[in-house]
Simulated scan of single mutants.
Amino acid sequence: MADLAVFARLARAQVRSQLSYRSSFVMNCFGQALAQANDLVVILIVFGRVASLGGFDISAVLLFYALSGMSFGLADMAVGSIERLPTYIRAGTFDVVLMRPLGTLLQLFASDFQLRRIGRVLTAFGVLVYVLSTSDIHWSPAKVLLLVLTPVAGAAIFGAIFVAANSVSFWFIDARELANTVTYGGSYLTSYPISIYTGWMRVLLAYLVPGAFVAYYPALTLLDHADPLGAPSWLGWLGAPVAVLAAVVAGLIWRSAVRHYRGTGS
């Protein structure tokens, strides 16, 4: 709890620093919103030529996109600064991180709490509002709870992916691009139904990297839509447990990576 309190103070300092340059902050938010909107444009172009994709109409795919975009935006905002890890390792400044009486992950997360990336979340949230207002969803208290928890659980899954993917920087000189293929690539892949991917890709996306639990399975439950691949409907309720499991696995990977760190020798 003490570490979390320190993290909260550091994050607030980062936010105040970013908001002190309001014009720059607004432009950065707008740029992030446009970056998220690029994927939306691609979806609209695709559905300009086809009526369905992987057994789903445009409303369902937009729901995948919205849930995935919100989840990734929240994770990128909170833990995306871990992408700077290769720079810390090469420059030897990660040694300083190890010397401080605070968890290494929390220090990296708080080093650049990127509130400006809220633009991604806002774009995805706008699409979510549109989809929910135009779709025939039979609401229940359980579905409302699922809708609220899904972006949070999805953000935790993406956060775990960020940590696990960037941990390879302890073994490679510069693994940033390799990590980006899993993090940013995962965001793109989870915006579409997994039924459009080949068998090995589905196994990778749904189970090894649990991206299917970010948006696909929860959206199927919200829409009462049967999975074209035959998966049971109760998988849509497993987002939170999968997020906890992913966080534990990512934490173990990080712990092992840090223990193998030997410094720069300088």
Rank of each mutant, 00 (worst) to 15 (best):
S24D: 10
A165E: 07
F30I: 14
I118M: 14
L108M: 15
I173Y: 11
W139N: 05
A247C: 12
M77A: 10
F64E: 00
F47N: 00
T123K: 03
L85K: 02
L252K: 12
D39C: 03
I137L: 13
L53F: 14
A66L: 06
S266M: 09
I118H: 07
A165F: 06
L204I: 05
F172Y: 13
P232C: 08
G73Y: 01
E177L: 14
A75H: 02
A247S: 14
V79D: 02
V168Y: 08
V214Y: 05
R9M: 07
D39V: 07
N166L: 11
A165N: 10
A51Y: 00
V129N: 01
I45Q: 07
R90H: 12
L85H: 07
H138Q: 13
S81V: 05
L40W: 13
V258K: 02
P151G: 06
A124Q: 04
A66D: 04
R116Y: 07
M77D: 02
G48P: 07
V249R: 05
L132W: 07
G55C: 05
L146M: 12
P101E: 11
L108I: 10
S133N: 10
S81F: 08
L62R: 03
F113L: 04
V203R: 12
G185F: 13
S81A: 15
G92W: 13
Q14R: 13
G92M: 12
R176I: 12
R176K: 14
E83D: 10
A75M: 11
Q32F: 13
R116H: 10
N166Y: 15
M70K: 09
M201K: 12
L146F: 08
A35E: 11
I118R: 09
S133D: 10
